[in-house]
Design a protein around this nucleic acid. Structure first.
Lengths: 138, 138
DNA sequence: ATTACTGCAAAGCATTTGCAGACTG
DNA sequence: CAGTCTGCAAATGCTTTGCAGTAAT
C-alpha cells in the first residue's frame, strides 16, 4: 500500500482493498453500488478487483457501523455510503435514477400512529421520488 | 372459473389466475410477496401455479394502477398490495419482519429542501423500523 | 506463525424472458 | 379465430459461499 490512510477504523485489519473502498466512499457525495465501487477501483489500480471481495468488505463495514446500506427505488441494487452519523434522506429521479440529497427530514416532529402501541421505533427510511430538472423537459 | 368476481377491472382479460391473485390480495391486510401469493394460490386450488405467471400478473396490475409494489427493509423481496388510493406507510419489525400499518403520514405538512430546486416531487416512500411488542421482551 | 482476507469459481435466490400450447373475448 | 395468457424451462443479474493460496499482525 502506497498511501497511508489517516483515521483507519479500529479493530479492522487494514488491507489495500479495504483502504481503496473507504477512500472511494469518502470521496463520493452519493451512495455507490458494489459494482460502481468495483469500477472505480479498477480505474485507479491496475489489478483486478472482485465483486465478491467488495461485498464482503461492505458487509464488514456495515456490521462495524462505518457504512450504511440502502436500497433506493424498490428493486434496484443496494448502495453504500459512509455513515456520517447524521440524518440523511434522498430524492431519486424516476427517469435517470439520479440521487439528490435532502436537507431536511419530515420525521423530526412526527409521532407515528401505530395500531401496535408497544412498537419501539428505532429508525426510519424515507425516499422521495420524482423527476429531476434534467429529465423534466421531455 | 367457479365464482364470479364483482368489479373486475376494465381493460384486463379475466383469467382464473388473475382472479385468484386479486382475491388473495383483496383479502389480505398486508402486502404479500410473489412467493406468498403463489403459496396461497396452491392452497386454494389443486393446480400448480407458476411464479413467472404471478410476476407477469403483478407487472400488469402495477402498470394498470391496481396494485402497488414495494420493497420493505432493504434487501427483501418485493411485496404487492391492492392500491386503495389512500396513502399508507408501514412499520416493520427488524426482528420478526412483521408489518404494521401506520395511520398517519409525516409528509403531509412537509416541504422537502432539495439542492435541485427544479426537482418535481411525485411521491414518497417511508418505512419505519423498530421492534414490535412480541419481540421486545427478550 | 497464525489467523484473517482475497482471487476465483460456482452456487443461490428473486425476477425475467422465450416459446409452444391453452384459453379468452 | 385472433390475440393474449400461462405452463414450463432456462436465462439473468445481484449477491453469497467455498476453497486454496496470499497477506497482515
Amino acid at each position: 500500500m502506497k498511501e497511508i490512510q489517516i483515521n483507519w477504523p479500529a479493530g479492522i485489519k487494514r488491507t489495500k482493498q479495504r483502504e481503496n473502498v473507504l477512500t472511494i466512499l469518502e470521496s463520493s457525495d452519493k451512495p455507490l453500488s458494489a459494482t460502481e465501487i468495483c469500477t472505480q477501483m479498477e480505474k485507479t489500480s491496475d489489478e483486478p478487483v472482485w465483486l465478491s471481495t467488495i461485498y464482503r468488505i461492505m458487509e464488514l463495514f456495515v456490521k462495524k457501523g462505518i457504512v450504511i446500506k440502502t436500497n433506493m427505488m424498490s428493486n434496484e441494487m443496494a448502495v453504500y455510503e459512509i455513515n456520517q452519523f447524521k440524518h440523511k434522506h434522498y430524492a431519486v429521479c424516476i427517469n435517470c435514477h439520479k440521487i439528490i440529497t435532502l436537507d431536511n427530514c419530515p420525521m423530526e416532529k412526527f409521532i407515528p400512529k401505530l395500531e401496535d402501541e408497544n412498537f419501539h421505533v428505532m429508525g426510519h427510511n424515507l425516499e422521495i421520488f420524482g423527476v429531476c430538472k434534467d429529465c423534466d423537459q421531455h
